[in-house]
């Protein structure tokens, strides 16, 4: 349990998201800002994965 006790100061959120949800309305679409951020990040990460040159274990040379 010692390690869990050490984690104690980390268990309170640095950024408090327990606030009233922010929601965007557009036409018939309703989405929370949090979900929209996740979806936009997903698209950005996908595009970045396609565009950024690969320097991993298979890149060689």
């Amino acid at each position: 349990m010692a390690t869990l006790v050490l984690l104690h100061p980390l268990t309170a959120a640095l950024v408090n998201l327990d606030t009233r949800a922010r929601v965007l309305h557009w036409w018939f679409i309703q989405i929370t800002v949090a979900n929209l951020v996740v979806i936009i990040l997903m698209v950005l990460v996908f595009v970045a994965a396609l565009l950024i040159p690969f320097r991993g274990p298979g890149s060689k040379r």
Binding site: L17, D18, T19, R20, A21, R22, V23, I29, Q30, I31, T32, V33, A34, N35, V37, V38, I39
Partner: peptide, 25 residues
Amino acid sequence: ARNLTGDQWGMMNETGNYPGQAWLW
């Protein structure tokens, strides 16, 4: 009040400003 009802697209939402089950969009 937490934007969780069906006509608020609530199934993909979480309480507060947390992301929810966005995959249920």
